[in-house]
Each structure stands twice: as structure tokens, then as C-alpha cells.
């Protein structure tokens, strides 16, 4: 089973990289670009076959390492 994890900054946390991308898009002539937020994406191969157990396992991974829950949210998708 493969877990796809999206880690994004919590709403309101300053995102200087997102701001820079937003500015660059404007310079490149893309009109109508609003706020840009950037994040991280992970793919984790799992031996676990049980969906619920895998979800628990990945959640623990996110809590313990992959995300910093002080500033980041995570979103898990199992496939």
C-alpha cells in the first residue's frame, strides 16, 4: 500500500516561499493570482495491507516526524 501525504502550513502561518512564488507569478504576467501557499508532498511505501491500521501508522508518522504540528497540517491519502 502507498500513502500519499500532503503537508501544508496552517492558515495564518507566514509562508515566505509562497509569497515569493506569488510575486514571481505576477512578474511572469499571470493575472488574477491570489495568495499562494506552498507545502510538501510525500509518498511512503507500506507493508501494511489493512487500511485502518495503515492510516493509524501513517498518522503516527506525521505526528512524530513528517509534519511539525506547531505550524503544519497534514492530509493522508491511501492507495
Amino acid at each position: 500500500m502507498k500513502a500519499k501525504i500532503k503537508v501544508t502550513l496552517k492558515t495564518g502561518v507566514l509562508d515566505p516561499q509562497g509569497k515569493a512564488i506569488e510575486g514571481a507569478l505576477g512578474h511572469l504576467g499571470f493575472d488574477g493570482v491570489g495568495e499562494v501557499r506552498q507545502g510538501k508532498y510525500f509518498e511512503v511505501e507500506l507493508a501494511e495491507t489493512d487500511h485502518a491500521k495503515a492510516k493509524e501508522q501513517v498518522k503516527a508518522m506525521c505526528e512524530k516526524l513528517i509534519a511539525n504540528t506547531v505550524i503544519e497540517n497534514y492530509d493522508i491519502e491511501l492507495a
Partner: peptide
């Protein structure tokens, strides 16, 4: 800070 011994977090410098 990541280990939880201090509160808060250090993120990228404002000007990147």
C-alpha cells in the same frame, strides 16, 4: 525546539 524542549518554531528567514 523540534524536540519540544522549547516552544515555537524556527522558519525560513523573511527574505529567504
Amino acid at each position: 525546539t523540534e524536540a519540544g524542549l522549547l516552544p515555537g518554531v524556527l522558519v525560513r528567514n523573511k527574505d529567504l
